[in-house]
Design a protein around this nucleic acid. Sequence first.
DNA 1: AGCATTAATTAACCTTTGTTAACCGCTACT
DNA 2: AGTAGCGGTTAACAAAGGTTAATTAATGCT
Lengths: 198, 198
Amino acid sequence: MLQSVTTLQQILFDLSGILPADAQPLFSVTRPAQLAANAVYIPEGDRSKKLAFIEKGIIRAYRVKDNGDEATLFLRWEGQFAASHDTIIHSRPSRFIYRALEDTSLLEIDYDVLETVLKAHTEYEPLRNFFLMKMLAESLDLIETFVTLSPEERYRRLVKDKFDIVNRVPDKYIASMLGITPVSLSRIRKRIHARGQH
Amino acid sequence: MLQSVTTLQQILFDLSGILPADAQPLFSVTRPAQLAANAVYIPEGDRSKKLAFIEKGIIRAYRVKDNGDEATLFLRWEGQFAASHDTIIHSRPSRFIYRALEDTSLLEIDYDVLETVLKAHTEYEPLRNFFLMKMLAESLDLIETFVTLSPEERYRRLVKDKFDIVNRVPDKYIASMLGITPVSLSRIRKRIHARGQH
DNA sequence: AGCATTAATTAACCTTTGTTAACCGCTACT
DNA sequence: AGTAGCGGTTAACAAAGGTTAATTAATGCT
């Protein structure tokens, strides 16, 4: 049994008191999947509505800008969902590329299938709601950092809050997420070390 | 009958085929509310879970930073929801202040009451889902602008996409939303005009 | 209408970031 | 082992943003 299934069953139980045995209709339509480091999960322009709960590893969502540069929108790791929001929410081809940064294990489901299951089993609905709200809250928190903090402060906070993630990801992707260039991040790191990281 | 009710009934019908008459259990627990320009809707530290669908007007969510400056997180206007995500999602007192920028009309509901109604009438659930997804998509789009665009480009896009909103809101709040100072926004505007806004 | 307050602009100066390019490891590949 | 490629750092310069303060414009109030 995948850890992911246990985790999600536990969350479902905490939210609604639904026992793992009663969650069978949901988990029977999920399937494990593997991605090698650097493998593309969802290519640009893709229309597939796969939804991945990450068991192990990191997925990077990024876009290729008009000038050819890559812009990393977000990273998702263990215990989080990754999916093309362009496709699931707007039925549009994905503007983003989703790619594994490490060897990654997923629990996968097709969103249309999930919809069908949720329609037939409304008791699972709190699970979707929980993750939607969680993602929304995280997004708003991130927006808050862009509005209130300087690039250096954003970096310091990221290191403080997500030290393990920062350490698992090349700096250039971190820089991109912070909205700055790798050169600028390198200078920020130098400044912080020069000041003794207080 | 408030326009808001009609609007929401229509969305509910489009999503689920539920007729306005069958939505009575939902709309019977909503109430209209009014805010004068500059009135506070949710003060900092508040724990109320009121959820407002904006009929007319604009609500600004902002935070007072440690240095005393205000940082505007977002604006919400006609057809959108405003609510304390700190309180509804995390049951925490609101870090943000929600204040009307104009005379504002709302359709209000208490989130706990909504939960109860949704538990008894799962057929309304798509409505919550629709707005959660919409807000998530909008948040991700906003994050994308911080990651891919310069302050000047973010401003240009905002004017292009939300011209009417920009025109209804003082520049200093726009600047704050863009993550820059009013002084800097003023310079950006000057640059754009000097170049003839291409 | 007149006055007080707030918003927006401008200027001067400083700090930070963007850009380009060179350089230094480190890793992977053959 | 040798080499190509990538990630990260550094340097030099240009461009942009932050800060402070003064000025002008707009708004609100009585």
